[in-house]
C-alpha cells in the first residue's frame, strides 16, 4: 500500500506526477489533522479523495493550493514545491472550495471577466462568453450570481476555475449540498475537464461520486491515506463477489429522474437545460 519513500528523480515539470505528496503533517493545536500523507496524482487523471467529515480532506487541499502551510513533509504541484515556490504553484492551479466562491453581487459574466483579468488574459469578454456557453449559463449571464440556483452557482464556480487552463484543478466537495440533477451537471463538467487533459483532485464524501468519476481513489482516514488504488483494485480488497440473483429494483434516484428528468422544462429560472441527455445516460447506466 505504501509507496517507496525515496524521492523519484526530479524530472522536468511536464513529466512526473501532477501532484506529489510525501509525509505531509498538519496539526491545529492539539488536533493532528494530517499524520503523514503520501500521495501521487498522475497527469490528466481524476483523483478522488474520499473521507468522512473532519478526515482532513479540506486541510490537504488548502495546503496544496498554498492557503495553508504544512507542519512537516513535502508537497509538489506541477513540479513546484508548495512551500518554497508558492507563486509558481498558484500559476498552475485553480481551487474550487467547499462553498461556491462566486461574487454574488456581480453577474455571472462579470465574475468570469474578473478572473480572466486577474489572470492577465487577452480578451476577457470573449473568454467569459465562451465559458457561459459551455456551462449553459448564457441566458443567466447578465443576472447577479446571488440569484442563481445552487447548481448554476457551482457551474459558474467551476467555470471560473477553468479560466487560463491551469493544468491542475482542486475541487473540494464540489457537489455537497446540490440536488441530484445539479450533481450530475457538475460530474459532466468534471469529466470534460479530464478529457481536456486537466488533472483533477476532487474530494468527496459521496462514494458513488468517486465511483462515477475517478481514475484512482484514495481514502483519507484519521489523517492518513489508508487505501489508494483504482476502483477495480479497491474492490479486490474485499472477498470475491458472490453471484446472487436479486430482482432489480429501481433506486430512488432512477425514480426521481424518471419522474422529473425528462420533462425538459426545468429552466424556470432561466437555466438552459442542455444536461438532459447526459442525465439520462448517467442514470441508465446502472
Amino acid at each position: 500500500m505504501l509507496t517507496a519513500m525515496n524521492i523519484p528523480p526530479t524530472n522536468s515539470q511536464s513529466q512526473g506526477p501532477a501532484i506529489h505528496v510525501r509525509g505531509l503533517e498538519k496539526s491545529y493545536k492539539e488536533l493532528r489533522v494530517l499524520r503523514g500523507v503520501d500521495l501521487d496524482v498522475a497527469r490528466g487523471s481524476i483523483f478522488a479523495l474520499l473521507g468522512s467529515n473532519g478526515a482532513g480532506k479540506t486541510t490537504l487541499v488548502r495546503i496544496l493550493s498554498t492557503l495553508l502551510k504544512a507542519d512537516a513533509g513535502t508537497a509538489r504541484v506541477n513540479g513546484f514545491d508548495v512551500a518554497t515556490q508558492a507563486a509558481d504553484v498558484r500559476e498552475s492551479i485553480s481551487l474550487t472550495g467547499q462553498f461556491a466562491a462566486v461574487d454574488g453581487i456581480l453577474s455571472g459574466r462579470e465574475n468570469l471577466v474578473l478572473v480572466a483579468r486577474l489572470r492577465h488574459l487577452k480578451d476577457p469578454g470573449a473568454i467569459a462568453d465562451d465559458l457561459l456557453r459551455r456551462f449553459s449559463l448564457t441566458e443567466a449571464g447578465t443576472r447577479r450570481a446571488a440569484t442563481y440556483s445552487g447548481g448554476m452557482r457551482r457551474r459558474l464556480d467551476i467555470a471560473m476555475s477553468l479560466i487560463g487552463n491551469p493544468p491542475v484543478i482542486f475541487l473540494d466537495e464540489p457537489t455537497t449540498g446540490l440536488d441530484p440533477e445539479a450533481r450530475i451537471e457538475v460530474w459532466q463538467a468534471v469529466k470534460e475537464l479530464a478529457e481536456g487533459g486537466t488533472t483533477v483532485l476532487l474530494t468527496t464524501q459521496y462514494l458513488n461520486e468517486a465511483e462515477q468519476l475517478a481514475d484512482r481513489i484514495a481514502i483519507l482516514h484519521q489523517g492518513r491515506i489508508i487505501v489508494n488504488g483504482t476502483l477495480a483494485e479497491l474492490k479486490q480488497l474485499l472477498p470475491p463477489a458472490k453471484v446472487e440473483y436479486v430482482e432489480k429494483q429501481p433506486s430512488l434516484e432512477d425514480v426521481f429522474f424518471a419522474v422529473v428528468g425528462d420533462t425538459g422544462d426545468r429552466d424556470k429560472d432561466g437555466d438552459v437545460d442542455k444536461g438532459n441527455q447526459d442525465r439520462t445516460t448517467a442514470s441508465n447506466r446502472k
Partner: peptide
C-alpha cells in the same frame, strides 16, 4: 466568509 477571498489567495495575483 464567502470563499471568494480564498479563490483570490489561491490565484497568481
Amino acid at each position: 466568509q464567502g470563499g471568494i477571498f480564498e479563490r483570490f489567495q489561491s490565484m497568481p495575483i
